[in-house]
Design a protein around this nucleic acid. Structure first.
Ligand code: FES
Ligand code: FES
Lengths: 131, 131
DNA sequence: TTCAAATACTATACAAAGGTAGTAATTAAA
DNA sequence: TTTAATTACTACCTTTGTATAGTATTTGAA
């Protein structure tokens, strides 16, 4: 697996917040704009807030604001927050096959392609996505 | 997700059978050799048999034999058997975001890398894996 | 013929990801 | 001050992928 649904949600949210740095956007608005289940979204938002990628404001007129410059947030930063695996850049589902335990027979093939994608996650920032 | 654990299991099994075309290999032996849970493996084998990638022989001295030339079995053939999604070549988990419903913001980036991996699944055969 | 070794089948259990529901806590506006 | 809008928290539900258990069926060898 490269990235899962939750991670895509988070990336899309950050991209949206990057376009509205001024005023807080509520989870309700985000949910409707990006078509992400509301209740699921709020949990994602809370986690992003705890990790200080976004600031949260409770109460009326509250919402979320991006906490850093979009050009300083790498996609990998976001992916890591919603990942329990050690980063493994694998084409197959089971990262445990990587490393010292051995690797699957596909691992060495397409090494370049995988490496290319992985490097992009490190190099690409939220700020660059819209362009 | 590119491929899941079951699909890797199946590819490894086919690769093993390709190296012993003569005599049937039992699920027990395959399980031990490849370190795949026995009971799970047998279900994978039954499915491969139904799809006629392998022949099965019951009873004593029974087991499984590859049914085609290894050079005629594409990795994609195997992957398709254990896949319910339409092939989507996506970096993200949700293939449904592809196609007419739209695609995620990462889809167009790394198109080349994804295409490269996908083409390899089509072009690479079981027979080539060992080399 | 008997029996042990093997596949085939069916049902169930487990784990992780994704999603839902309800409530408490907060806060700015009216 | 009251209230409605909002985040925070906790628990649970659903789906999918993975794994296990038990039994029936087949079959070659002793
Ligand atoms: S691709 Fe790395 S272990 Fe399978
Ligand atoms: S990579 Fe294709 S929709 Fe996400």
């Amino acid at each position: 697996m490269i990235i899962n649904k939750t991670q895509i949600y988070a990336i899309r949210v950050l991209e949206l917040l990057a376009q509205h740095k001024e005023t807080p956007i509520s989870a309700k608005t985000i949910s409707q704009t990006l078509d992400i289940p509301y209740k699921y979204l709020t949990r994602v938002m809370t986690k992003l807030s705890l990790c200080q990628l976004i600031d949260s404001y409770r109460g009326k007129e509250g919402g979320f604001v991006i906490a850093k410059s979009p050009l300083e947030i790498q996609l990998q930063d976001i992916v890591d927050i919603f990942s329990n695996e050690s980063p493994h850049q694998c084409i197959c589902a089971d990262g445990s096959m990587c490393g010292q335990n051995g690797k699957c027979i596909l691992h060495d093939r397409w090494q370049n392609s995988k490496e290319s994608i992985h490097q992009s996650f490190l190099n690409t920032t939220i700020g660059e996505l819209s362009t």
